[in-house]
Simulated scan of single mutants.
Amino acid sequence: MPPQVSTDETDELFTVAADYLRKRLTPELSQPKVAIICGSGLGGLVDTIEETDKVEFSYEEIPGFVSSTVPGHAGKLAFGLLGKNKMPTVLMVGRFHFYEGYNLKQITFPIRIFKLLGVETLIVTGAAGSLREEFETGDIGVLSDHISIPGFCGVNPLSGPNLPAFGPRFTALSDTYDYELRVKAFKAAQKLNFTPGSIKESIYCFAGGPTYETRAEARFLKSTGGDVVGMSTVPEIIVAKHCGIKILGLILVTNKVVEKKPKSADPMNYQQMMNYQDQEPVNHEEVIALGVSKAKDMKNLVKTIIELI
């Protein structure tokens, strides 16, 4: 059993967790250079690392980690060598979410551990809904920016006392998404002969969940310039930026967001009532299913990007 430690965010807590992992790994695996967060339905990314070298830990056994409770999230860390260049890599097979009842410091706790272990590059994957006609289901968005709706209300993983051992009190986010990594993502897609236009730069809107957006909320997010919307990703990215880790965000578009105004009940709006064609509501099982069906594409893309690093 791992030692019982406080859930308060302290340098000591991070050190305890990092030491727990380091002592149970070979020297090579204990110093991963790349971390990958596997989003909904994308746990198959763990198959990118070589089975003979793989070492796994359930979240429950790692000091300070909470449990992943969402279907499609296995809840484990996997360490191994990835790609032709045998890159030492750690994968979060399943992430934590705000809507599970965790605070943002619990959600982002693993990022601090990755930094202590030596991670230099974070690849964050996830599923999201499309706010744009040109973003089809199955497309992959390469994040160039984000909009944090909870952040507007002061809900930020960097709130509270700063941790100067990791980064500054005030962290600039204007250059969050590493340009060279984004270039490599497009080069990798080209190398894999992805359909032209199926990988696009995108702006991610972070909403707290667990409800999907109302129609009015979807139209509002679209008006802000957002391309896709999801319930994760941004908290981890903010903390990674605070830690000085290079970041690449890859988002699988799993559904079209419902934004059409509902059918009018006003008899004076007879024409709209008669001609109305509604949109199907979002279904989480379908989101997971599409993630699984497209896991091979995402897996090959991530593997090829790492081979270009």
Rank of each mutant, 00 (worst) to 15 (best):
G129P: 05
G141F: 00
T137G: 00
L131E: 07
D145G: 07
H146F: 12
G118N: 10
T121Q: 14
L122P: 15
F135I: 07
T125W: 02
G154I: 01
A128K: 11
V142P: 01
L131P: 00
L116V: 00
I123D: 15
G138Y: 02
G141A: 13
T125M: 10
R132T: 07
G126D: 14
K115H: 06
F152Q: 07
I147W: 08
L131G: 06
L143K: 08
I147P: 02
S130G: 12
I147L: 10
L117K: 08
E136F: 04
L143D: 02
F152A: 03
F152M: 12
L143M: 14
G118H: 05
D145H: 05
T125I: 13
I140S: 04
E136P: 00
P150W: 12
S144E: 11
I123Y: 15
T137N: 02
V124E: 14
I149H: 04
I140M: 09
E134C: 01
G118C: 10
I149C: 03
T137V: 06
I149L: 12
E120Y: 12
G141S: 09
F152L: 13
H146K: 05
L122V: 14
F152R: 06
A128N: 12
V124L: 14
L131C: 04
L116R: 14
A128M: 12
F135V: 02
T137K: 09
G151P: 02
E133R: 05
F152C: 08
G138N: 07
E136G: 01
S144Q: 12
